[in-house]
Design a protein around this nucleic acid. Structure first.
Length: 259
DNA sequence: AGGTATGTTAATTG
DNA sequence: GCAATTAACATACC
């Protein structure tokens, strides 16, 4: 689930629930999710502190503490956040954060593919990992420039977090469907109008998904995603959708509209 | 029981 | 150095 629109949901949820309450304690059942820290190190950084704001870059969520340090959360393929009364810990909770108000914020990750870390600043984390600009923050000019230095398929470009942060398999399929480009089209084959069309589709798709709270069922029926499954048909021309392996993932597309 | 899965990263190959 | 491909990670779900 968690691509840019999903993590943006988490950011808003975090800001609406978890700010300004003192942290009583935390627990780390699976230390393998920790990056460059330990359960003790994390506990030391969080205990007695409050969160003051949450920010997002690509698929990463950064939660600022009143100490100035930041908690970093990545949701992998299946992570989520839940805030509720203490003692209602959901299954697959990998980080419960208990507050003094009797509520807890639960970070869940059923497949343990997420990441938990601490950083001095989001900027430092982003630079250390060489992440690209956030997909919704990049301007058209920079987007066009990025395209010019890129070879290979358009889908792998959109999903490359070092080039552009936030887009994954699901939303890259939708963006390419919206601007009628086949996922395996080489970036070098696109002209300026194609690239600008791609940029506009990217912004529109991500903004729409955020508006719909990143719930796939709420997306317009004219979108690919509600039909992206075996037996699904193109909402535009009713052709049977096909899929192909690209960039190590399954890319769904309409063979008639996207050529 | 086996195949697939919305993510990232390292190793391998061209 | 790039890009594509594959495997690995750990586990749920169909």
């Amino acid at each position: 689930m968690p691509e840019l629109p999903d993590v943006e949901q988490f950011r808003r949820y975090f800001n609406a629930t978890a700010l300004h309450q003192r942290i009583r304690r935390i627990h780390v059942p699976a230390p393998s999710l920790l990056v460059d820290t330990s359960p003790q190190g994390l506990g030391h950084a969080l205990k007695g502190r409050t969160f003051v704001a949450a920010e997002r870059h690509g698929k990463y969520l950064f939660a600022k503490l009143d100490s100035g340090k930041w908690l970093v959360l990545h949701f992998g393929m299946s992570g989520a956040l839940h805030y509720s009364k203490a003692g209602t810990r959901p299954k697959y909770t990998q980080l419960p954060i208990e507050f003094e108000n009797g509520f807890e914020l639960y970070y869940t990750a059923p497949r343990k593919l997420g990441r938990i870390a601490l950083t001095e600043s989001p900027r430092q984390w982003i630079d250390d990992r060489n992440l690209g600009q956030d997909a919704l923050a990049i301007g058209e000019k920079a987007f066009v420039e990025r395209a010019a230095q890129r070879r290979g398929s358009i889908k792998s470009w959109l999903m490359d977090q070092h080039s552009l942060a936030g887009i994954g398999n699901i939303y890259s399929d939708e963006i390419l469907f919206q601007c009628r480009l086949h996922p395996q089209t080489p970036v070098g084959d696109l002209d300026d109008a194609d690239i600008r069309g791609l940029y506009r589709a990217l912004r529109r798709v991500l903004a729409t998904a955020i508006e719909r709270r990143a719930e796939p069922e709420r997306l317009p029926d004219s979108y690919l995603l509600p039909h992206r499954h075996d037996g699904g048909r193109c909402p535009r021309c009713d052709t049977a959708l096909e899929h192909t392996d690209t960039a190590g993932r399954t890319a769904w597309f309409c063979p008639r509209c996207q050529s």
